[in-house]
Structures are given as structure tokens and as C-alpha cells.
Design a protein around this nucleic acid. Structure first.
Lengths: 122, 122
DNA sequence: CTGCTAGTACTAATGTTTTAGTATGAAGCG
DNA sequence: CGCTTCATACTAAAACATTAGTACTAGCAG
């Protein structure tokens, strides 16, 4: 009955992403969206969504026939927490090295760098 | 006998960080460094280091008495791969949103932003 | 009514990561 | 030598994450 872990695991994130996209889906809708990309059982999706509810990421209410789920935290906030956790774990909390990694790596196009440069201006 | 996973898990990273810091330590040295922060068994550290060897992150050679381990890949390279994996998983491969997250979040001091602004210049 | 469909609850197998115990041997000391 | 210490190999349990099966219910098409 106890769910200690508070952060999202890999598969949980995948499901949350689908839910954020769909808005307030039922298990079936999430299931079908996932199916487009990979084989998965309906009950697996249900289990995951129940876990996500227990963890406080989802709320459910009785819908017409099936339960309707809704995210209880906005995507941005959750992602932000994940970034923070990653920065803590990998860079001991210092965001700068991560930024430098991203910048010096050629994962960014010139246009993107431009964008950033603009948004970074005080 | 099969070790599929190629990326570092949480605890593995913790150990690799200690090893990068120490250079070419024995199990005991890693063990003692870890002990300063948390309780852990000697054999646990050994197991982890063996796994890291199997995964190709460490090389070992016979030392005076115990095995001496050395990182087989530079820290920077490994961290880079982790960043890439994170960006893929969380941001579907787009580095820019992550950068914006970092920038707009107040995790960075003015000085750090200055630094970055400089390094971002073409 | 009867059988089919969609739904949930409960349970459980499988997989992976993390932690550590036990057996065993080499080396040094008194 | 006999005992303690430090080391490794092998084994495995605990904890966490992922996937799915089974039983049961309600509603609806025929």
C-alpha cells in the first residue's frame, strides 16, 4: 500500500506525456494512443495509471462509463522537478555545467542558440 | 549472465563519481569514501564495481594486494551520454526546451548566466 | 434472456537494481 | 603454527519497476 518514490520512472513519464497531450482521457484512450507505438496490454496501462494516481500525479472521477483521469499537476511543473532531480544527481545541483554541456555539444542549431541568447538577456 | 543496459543507473553513477575523483582506487578506497556519506557494505561496493567492469566502465588490474580499478571512459564522455539520454527521454531529443527550463528557472546566479552568455557567443 | 463488450479490482509473474551474506584463500603476526 | 585481517568469487535476498492475467460486473445488441 505504500508508494515511497515520488519521482516519475521511465514508463510512468511516457504515460504522463500521453495524458498531458490528451487532456482528460480514459484508460482506453491512453491505451490506444500507446498502441500506435508499441504493443502493450490494456491492464498494464490501467495498472500504471492507478500507480500514478497513488503517487498523486493523476486524479480520477467517474465518467459516463469508465473512469476519467486528469493530471493533477501541470506538465511544466513536473518536468521542472525532473530536471532539478537530474541536475542534483548528475551535477550535484549545479545547473551551469549542464548548460555548458548542452551549449558546447552540437545538439543545438544556430537558430536555437539565437533564441537562447535572446531569452538570456536580462 | 546478460547485462543489456548500457547506461548508468543511479547508484552506479554515484560510484563512478567517486572513482573519477580518486583516479585508480581499490574497492576498499571507494568503500571508505562512500562510508563518509552513508552506510554500505564492502561487498556491495565490490559487486557494483564488478558490474561496472562488465558494463565496460571500469578496467581492473592486479595491484599489490587487491585489484586496482581505473575508469575506462572519461567522465565528460559518460556524463554527455547521460545528458543526451535524458534529453531524449524527457524532451524527445530537443535540447532547447531543457535549456530554457534552466534559464528561466532561478537555479542560475547572475554570474553563471554571464558565463554562459560569453560561452554562447559564436 | 443470453451472449458479447468494456470496464475495474485484485493478483501475480517477470525483470532490473541494489544490497549484502557466506565460503574460501593468501598474507602477516605473535 | 594458529589466528586475525583483507581480499575475491559466488550466491542470493530485498526492493523497486514493468507487464499482464483472471475474476467479476454492468450494459447493451439480438
Amino acid at each position: 500500500m505504500k508508494r515511497a518514490r515520488t519521482t516519475l520512472t521511465g514508463q510512468e513519464l511516457e504515460i504522463m506525456k500521453v495524458i498531458w497531450k490528451l487532456g482528460t482521457p480514459t484508460v482506453r484512450q491512453v491505451y490506444e494512443t500507446l498502441l500506435e507505438r508499441r504493443k502493450v496490454a490494456y491492464t498494464t496501462v490501467m495498472t500504471m495509471m492507478n500507480i500514478l494516481e497513488q503517487k498523486g500525479y493523476l486524479k480520477k472521477r467517474q465518467g459516463d462509463r469508465a473512469f476519467v483521469y486528469a493530471p493533477s499537476r501541470p506538465e511544466k511543473q513536473v518536468i521542472r522537478a525532473m530536471v532539478r532531480e537530474f541536475v542534483d544527481r548528475v551535477f550535484n545541483g549545479a545547473a551551469e555545467p549542464l548548460l555548458l554541456h548542452l551549449v558546447e555539444d552540437d545538439q543545438l542549431t544556430k537558430e536555437e542558440l539565437d533564441e537562447i541568447r535572446k531569452s538570456i538577456r536580462p
